[in-house]
Design a protein around this nucleic acid. Sequence first.
DNA 1: GGTCCCTAGATACC
DNA 2: ACAGGTATCTAGGGACC
Length: 823
Amino acid sequence: MKINFIPIDYDYFDFEGKNYAKIIGRDDKGKRVCIIDSCPNYLWAILKEKITSKKIDSLIKKISKIELNEKGRKTKVEKIEIKDKMFMGKKVKALKIFATNYKDLHSIASSLDFKEIEKRRGYDLGYVSHYIIEKKINPLRWYEISGEILNNSLEYGGIDSVLEVDLCFKLENSKEIEDKKFKPKVLAYDLETDGLKIGGGEILMVSLAGENFKKVITWKKTTKKKPDYVEYVEDESELLEKFVENIKKYSPDFLVGYHSDGFDLPYLKARADKLKIRLPLGLDGTPPKFSRGMVLSGKIKGITHVDILKFIRTAYSQYMQSETLSLNEVSKEFLGDNKKEFQIKHSSEITNSDWLDYYEYNLHDSILTLGLFEKFWPDLLEFSRVIQEPTFDISRNGLSKQVENYILHNLEKHNEIPEKRPTHEDIGKRRHMKSVEGAFVYEPKPGLYENIAMFDFTSMHTSIIISMNISKGTLLPKKEKNSFESPEVEYEGKKKKFYFSKEQGFIPLLLKEILEKRKKYKAEYKKNPNKITLARSNAFKLLSASVHGYIGFFGARYFSIESSASILSFVRKFNIETIEKVKKAGHEVIYGDTDSIAFLMNTKSEKQIKELLAKLNSELPGVMELELEDFFKRGLWVTTRSGKFGAKKKYALLDKKGKLKIRGFETVRRDWCPLARKIQNKIIKQILEEGNSKKSLKYIKTIIQKLKDRKIDKEDLIIKTQLKKPLSEYLSITPHVFAAKKMEEQKIPIDEGGLIKYYIAETEGKSKLVRDKVKLPNEKGIYEIDYYLNKQILPAVENIFQVFDINIQETIEGKKQTTLGEF
DNA sequence: GGTCCCTAGATACC
DNA sequence: ACAGGTATCTAGGGACC
């Protein structure tokens, strides 16, 4: 029998000592299909150089005899092949050693204690990754598959008879076919509970949202007429049972929550355990399982559980406007929709009619979560396809893990044997290495400037890796003629240069392909805009931007501190050289950070600036490229607080369309009160638009008067600071820590990594400590004028006025004549 | 009680 | 542990006078 099949969820099992992949997906009619398959299991023994074939033969004989008894399971070497392979870009002879069970490859490797063997590799990938690499049954691509249908068969211990699928196949043949439309079945869920600690209180209700499907299951009833989507049950136990029942009935491919790895799913599990209910969500009737580690991941067999918060955090947060990753803010940014208004209280304090609002609130959270999944589905889909890992992992892995997986799935075309995962000891050593010197930042001369041009290097780190062929494998042990030479680097306390071979390394080559694909799909998107092409282009963009971080990340298989140090030394060199060249061309350079340079156009036209750009580009090696970021009408740079230096990483630009680009100023920092942020923003805008500070001076005076008259809205004075660790771990008690302590005393829940809100109020005591004046937003009090004037408003604007030689402090107090007359 | 200097902590830029 | 170096700034905390 032949069907068209798309793999979604991957798992594996052992039967009679052998490994089998178990893949759940759909056919093109929407039927749920499971395929069972196996693949050869092997590891590589890389041989030392110059081993005679006689010795190899005798080595093979010895290895062939290896038989192990692992955990009651017999495993043995089944076959050995000699292969010409590459390892770290060098030609090697290696033995491909096949064994019975993938999980025993570790033990086989340990028993390969022969002096002819240089290294043992390729036994430490996850089974699912190994299977995908071997059989090329890639996630979310269409295959025409054929095989034997298992129908309550006893094969594999009767595995198909307990699986809730329409068809179960023992895979015989597969071939990738043209992409077909695939619309996954998605169900989002959200809990409301009495308690924030996992399992700490009862689950009051749970909402579900899917296509044309919405439901709230609750045992908290109201005498008012309930909406149709609400289903009443008798108690929490029945709620859990109905929850499972509804999911089975809907039969989703993806079950989606927001922060559900950290809250909803473990909470459900904890309550089910307490009530002695099994919660058989898996297609084989098993309950959710949680992987160990710092952060839990909740896995449901056969259904891909996605905590969409995690994916947004790794793939999107760097490009987002939202100040927090709360469901509310993220939904506002991506869906233009809010959470429903509802003040969460303990169920004992909720009145009859409140429950109606609570149901709606609960339902809407699921609707938002579903909306976010749909919004990011093209990205999840394309990331899964590009990186070739199951969506479960794609949605949770950090960027370095994604890069590593991409590399591992693309080694074969370079005939490369995979490098091993670093051991704990390796990681410990790497972490204790002195960190390498980073990028260069040019100290700006404070001032308000007109007609500014800004250049920046396109994908600077990436293009350096490619152009200088930098990687662990291409690093030369010593200087060689005709090699790439890094600028001088401080390394292990000494000045040093590193050299990289000119023979193409596979990581630089992979990266080149990534960059080219990114360009290709970006262009394709421009020609024919659609979500999938954009998502694919984004996947390659994110991958290419993350490779340098990956190389310098201590947990990486292809970690190379020498490479990282070299890349950064080139980054500094090229930026500094460009600055010198722009100066030589007669321009005053105002600023530069890592890969950018801002300078005054002077009398030059835009055309002439572009000619300069072309000239600079002609002098750059390899794929390195400098591009025009933009021309700006005006730009503002200030001093640091001490007033001694031009402040780095802090500037504001006004482009020719009137759009502001503000970096580093308090107005973009969420730990300053809204009042200070709004005022600073307005002043920056006025100054850049007007070219002087006249208006702003008037404005600041009226605001200060308003503050002194206590006419400022309290909302505008609330300071928000994140609590980044448990209260007990803080060494110094800062205002936000003190505020958090107050919240704890008042039994106000503090969510992990949540923002602490407080304001500074007049107090009786004489204490000078800010924390002693901290009040929570719910606490009555009047704001302290002094604090907001001297610690919020003035600090936010004084460096700006200083650019115009105005000492705002003195101007406000009327002590000194201002230099306003100049304007 | 004030000043100085340092550290802890948060957040931003790239 | 899940990117990490460069940078700014506030508040607390201890040394010192």
